[in-house]
Design a protein around this nucleic acid. Structure first.
Lengths: 216, 216
DNA sequence: GTCTATACCCCGATAGAC
DNA sequence: GTCTATCGGGGTATAGAC
């Protein structure tokens, strides 16, 4: 089982160290020292160092995405038969992450910093891992946004989601060291939604050129 | 002088390797191997490894910022006595970087990836270096945006600039491997400006609540 | 499943000859 | 300014006893 005590201790320690110093700067020996287990245990339970990163990431991202999809469905159900409005879709994108981190309490800060580092890492195999995990999110949110903003092509929507995701990841990376309380978290969600919604609503550049021409 | 051949060779090699693999994953020995110089030369010319990163960064960012400030002044002069409109300010923020990278031709891709890595690095001393370099930009652009959007508090403007900067850094990190041609670069600038302008224009969240109340 | 011991390698930095 | 040699350390991974 994955609930094995040694396995969990290794994951917890790795999460903390990756969050604080990044993957490259963290050694297996540090992880085992912090976890109170033997060096060989890591190789026995995970195989190699990349597998540890994959395991730490998967443990966090799985539930987070599940929550995100559920919230999107709720927003769509609430608006039916109309499409969910763009604010609600953006909210469903951001809120699950902020709330999950808040619910994790003390570990939330660690997890935020960990996600901030992994999701902005440009190392090829790490990028591949994160973009595979992100694929389902994109696949579900592009149609939701397309329904709310029918003037945008799917490619343009995907482009904007990717830029917005970058801002969200930056929020993780700069997560306050002492965590957030509930009002601050709510404010963060509203601030992000407020900032991003008009960006999503912007006409595509070809349309913008038409608008310019019309205004002239 | 800084035009010393050995110094330049080391900087060029370090830039390439940092761009491709990141700071941690690049060793001084690799750098000297690629530069065709001796290991000890790095310590003689720079002192230590962090100093190499600082030198590589400074060589790029100095001219880039100079160009950014000049373009902001031009935009302001063109609009005088009115404040420069927000589109023009955002354009002056983005364009110098894209154009500098384009002008660097083949090296532009390397420099873009290098900047993408350094400016999203969360290591304390690297963050300090980059935020010091960014301070002057913030200091100049906050008033320029405040003049165009008087409904926003300076703190809120700084917050939005920081988020937008993150998107720009992401553009560097995902710069096409074979570089950009001029039309693509122009399209990238317009796409970014088009996406970001409405985000800057958004009312602050307290104002937004008032707007919601008024609409009710 | 857990531990010790170890193989084998690379690292940053410096001393000192040239 | 450049090079060789070396110090003192840490790294991943595995073999093999328990």
């Amino acid at each position: 089982m994955t609930t094995d005590a040694t396995t969990t201790a290794i994951l917890d320690a790795a999460e903390r160290l990756f969050a604080g110093s990044g993957y490259d700067a963290t050694s297996i020996r540090e992880i085992t020292r912090l976890a109170g287990v033997n060096v060989a245990a890591v190789h026995y339970h995970f195989g190699d160092k990349p597998a540890v990163l994959r395991a730490v990431t998967g443990r966090i991202v799985g539930p987070m995405n599940a929550r995100r999809f559920r919230l999107l469905e709720l927003a769509q159900a609430a608006a039916a038969p109309d499409p969910a409005p763009i604010e609600a879709v953006v909210d469903a994108f951001v809120r699950p992450d902020i709330e999950t981190l808040l619910a994790l309490q003390r570990r939330g800060t660690t997890v935020a910093h960990f996600l901030g580092r992994v999701y902005s890492d440009q190392t090829a195999w790490i990028r591949q891992m994160t973009s595979e995990q992100f694929a389902e999110t994109e696949q579900r949110f592009v149609p939701a946004i397309a329904a709310a903003l029918p003037h945008l092509a799917p490619d343009e929507i995907a482009w904007r989601i990717a830029r917005f995701a970058v801002v969200l990841v930056h929020t993780f990376a700069t997560w306050p060291a002492d965590g957030m309380d509930e009002p601050t978290a709510e404010l963060t969600v509203r601030r992000l939604v407020n900032f991003a919604t008009p960006a999503f609503r912007a006409p595509a550049i070809d349309d913008a050129r038409e608008v310019d021409a019309r205004a002239r």
